[in-house]
């Protein structure tokens, strides 16, 4: 049963409250997942510490070529941010895909990340962007790569009863780089992805300098297609190379069968299409910028 609801004005206060409650209090931002999980007793907490009044966490900023997004920033804010639209269209697409307009207006991007669903759209995009999370706790601040934030299905490495993700940050993509996010779902809102793929490519002339390719849900967490990425490094941008990348990526994918969101066979059947579309879109974007 919920006994207390705190609205701290600073990160420091939030951390003091976390510590003072000895693991009985939990961070809440938009609450669109947490409130339901609390009601169905999937998550237990005596107190919520609401971070939405902490002004410094409600910012999207660029400084020294690094973009930071605060923990109180909603999906709608990300999707509408000119800065993100300019640098990371993949993240705009991912943020725009979550839930419905009403949900996006209240749910935070960091909440999407910390909720740690295998195919959390923004998490998949952030993995491809090479993002990392700023995690604050009583013992200080640490930076955790986005792809290391999963501790199993629906389990984050972040303990929201003692830690607070304050920001997400990633290097602003350069003019030779492009990002893309492609998603397959049954309808245009209120649909978890049957599959989603995010890529970031860095081009050097007509070749891939490097590529980060993340896929989900093909395992308990967004999956990097590392063999494909390795192969792409230094390869020319051709259909044959795309084809080869797809084959290697498929080898790292292990989707489950879901009666609701598609069989394993179907997901394996369409994953190549999504990867190719994402790669092509990211390459186009990088070329356009040049």
């Amino acid at each position: 049963m919920l006994q207390e609801y705190y609205l701290p004005n600073s990160v420091e206060d939030a951390l003091v409250l976390l510590k003072g409650n000895n693991g009985q209090a939990r961070i809440i931002a938009g609450g669109t997942d947490l409130v339901i999980d609390h009601q169905t007793e999937k998550v237990k907490a005596d107190a919520f510490i609401d971070i939405s009044s902490i002004e410094e966490l409600n910012k999207i900023e660029e400084a020294d070529g690094v973009i930071t997004i605060g923990a109180a920033v909603t999906h709608s804010q990300v999707a509408k941010s000119q800065l993100i639209q300019k640098y990371a269209p993949s993240l705009v697409m991912a943020a725009r895909s979550v839930g419905s307009l009403q949900i996006r207006n209240i749910a935070t991007m960091v909440g999407n990340v910390v909720n740690a669903q295998p195919a959390a759209d923004t998490a998949v995009a952030l993995v491809a962007l090479g993002a990392e999370a700023e995690v604050s706790s009583a013992s200080g601040v640490e930076y955790v790569p986005e792809e290391s934030m999963y501790d199993g299905v629906g389990k984050s490495t972040v303990d929201s009863t003692s830690q607070l993700v304050t920001r997400i940050r990633f290097d602003a993509p350069q003019s030779n780089q492009g990002t893309a996010f492609v998603r397959l779902c049954q309808r245009k809102a209120l649909a978890l992805p049957m599959l989603n793929v995010a890529v970031m490519v860095s081009l050097k002339g007509d070749q891939f300098e490097w590529v980060r390719l993340a896929m989900a849900p093909v395992g308990p967490r967004p999956k990097r297609a590392t063999e494909a990425e390795e192969m792409l490094k230094g390869s020319p941008v051709t259909d044959e190379v795309f084809e080869k990348a797809v084959q290697l990526a498929l080898e790292s994918a292990n989707p489950r069968s879901s009666m609701v969101r598609g069989s394993r066979e179907y997901r394996m059947g369409v994953l190549p299409v999504l990867i190719k579309r994402a790669l092509a879109a990211a390459v186009d974007q990088a070329k356009m910028k040049n």
């Binding site: 049954q186 309808r187 245009k188 809102a189 209120l190 649909a191 009666m259 609701v260």
Partner: peptide, 16 residues
């Protein structure tokens, strides 16, 4: 039932 809520039963939404 595998489709027992508006979350997993795919009614068209206003956007569709």
């Amino acid at each position: 039932q595998q489709n027992y809520s508006f979350h997993n039963y795919f009614l068209p939404t206003a956007e569709d």
